[in-house]
Amino acid sequence: MTSGPDKVVVRIDHDLEEIVPGYLKNRWNDVEAMRNALKQGDFESLRVLGHRMKGSGAGYGFDAITEIGRGVENAAKTSQAGEIAQGIQDLVAYLERVEVVYE
């Protein structure tokens, strides 16, 4: 399978095929939730959202989401809004480019 130069190809066990689309859709919900929380300065919610992404991403096969989640969680602990905004932006960019291949 080929993909465009801006695509990120992730290979995932076909056992998880049923739940991966839902997982990615939930991350778009996270983007929305994080933006709202950031606007309101709700760093605790941001920490929890980051913590969950960190714990789940690699489990589904998305190592990058784990990394982004770790960054958001750590930034939220020290209330670094800039770092968090960057994390949200990285997540959006990743979600837009990620292409899943089941094998």
């Binding site: 056992d15 998880l16 049923e18 739940i19 839902g22 997982y23 939930n26 969950r52 714990g55 789940s56 489990g59 589904y60």
Partner: peptide, 16 residues
Amino acid sequence: DDSQDDRLLLETILNK
């Protein structure tokens, strides 16, 4: 687990 994504993932892995 408080994370629905994690519950779903564990369910899928264990079921399989």
